[in-house]
């Protein structure tokens, strides 16, 4: 078959063409293989409408007309209700997702409240213990009490107050639009800064109110920075209590200063260092008893067989007796 024949043949077939009389958008019949596309493009309206229009009208009785109209009305109403409810069901998020979120949020809030309640209780109990310790020890052994106070201060168990330096690292300047995790303050930056402050002679350091002790860890977990497993958020406020002048010169001489300069220059992180006449750092909470020793002249347990060595040995390996 030549192309010319095909075209003639195609033009002869009415089923290709527009359905409307006097078609304003006649389909050029090119090829039989195009019939599917032509069908879709040029006969989109249901042919049933045209067929129904061509069918001769049937005369029905009045009762039959009413019955027909009723059926149509009911069916149409059902379809309308179905469509609208489908649309509204698509527009609202699935209830399971919503309730799951709400449940999770509820749980988070509940646990957070429990944590803060427990923290409050810990604080109150610590204060009570400290009071009792003071009462018991201060009268009997003032020297020991002085040593205890000094140790508590140095170990970060109690709150301290005094002049010091405040270093703020802020990576949220200019809106929180940073996508590159590298351009944010890393745990490493805080570690370098804190080590610099310790070496400059800081007596106590806290990051965003989390007091650092000899056992504290500053770690990065994903994009979050954790101080003693508690997440801290920018801006990071590092407060160090100590001799202000010594801290300033010590920090300037240490490697921390050049590190801060480099992150400020490279990643556009705001670094501000200022002296504060009065800083108040919270305590790190109660410390664990890790090592115990019986004084030489202490009365032994009633049967008199237990010795200091036994006590040390019988302590659990991690010494974790609170």
């Amino acid at each position: 078959m030549t192309p010319g024949e095909g075209r003639r043949e195609g033009a002869g077939h009415a089923w290709y063409g527009p359905v409307r009389a006097g078609g304003t958008h006649a389909a050029p019949a090119v090829d039989a293989s195009m019939s599917l596309l032509n069908e879709v493009m040029y006969r989109p309206v249901d042919t049933a409408y045209a067929e129904a229009a061509e069918r001769p009208r049937v005369e029905r009785s009045r009762a039959a007309r009413v019955r027909r109209a009723t059926v149509h009305l009911v069916l149409a109403a059902a379809l309308g209700a179905l469509t609208v409810s489908a649309i509204s069901a698509l527009r609202t998020p699935p209830p399971e997702a919503v309730s799951g979120r709400a449940l999770l949020r509820e749980q988070i809030e509940e646990r957070s409240a429990a944590v803060s309640a427990l923290q409050e209780e810990t604080g109150a109990l610590s204060a009570e213990i400290a009071d009792l310790q003071e009462d018991a020890v201060a009268a009997e052994n003032p020297e020991l009490f002085a040593q205890l106070t000094r140790t508590e201060l140095v170990s970060g168990a109690v709150a301290v107050q005094g002049p010091g330096l405040e270093v703020v690292l802020d990576d949220t300047a200019g809106g929180d639009t940073r996508t590159d995790p590298l351009s944010r303050v890393q745990a490493l930056d805080l570690q370098v800064l804190v080590n610099g402050l310790w070496s400059a002679g800081a007596e106590a350091i806290a990051i965003n109110g989390e007091r650092l002790t000899a056992l504290s860890a500053i770690r990065g977990a994903g994009q979050a920075v954790l101080v003693d497993l508690a997440p801290v958020l920018p801006p990071y406020r590092v407060e160090a209590v100590g001799d202000v002048r010594a801290l300033q010169t010590g920090l300037a001489r240490s490697g921390a200063q050049s590190h801060l300069m480099s992150i400020a220059g490279t990643y556009d992180i705001d670094v501000t260092v200022r002296a504060v006449p009065e800083l108040l750092l919270p305590g790190a909470g109660s410390s664990r008893l890790r090592f115990a020793d019986l004084p030489d002249d202490a009365p032994l347990v009633p049967d008199g067989t237990s010795t200091a060595a036994d006590v040390e040995q019988s302590a659990p390996p991690d010494g974790g007796t609170p």
Partner: peptide, 10 residues
């Protein structure tokens, strides 16, 4: 008409 009524009901 029925479609509109049904939509309103829905």
């Amino acid at each position: 008409l029925g479609l509109l009524v049904g939509a309103a009901v829905g």
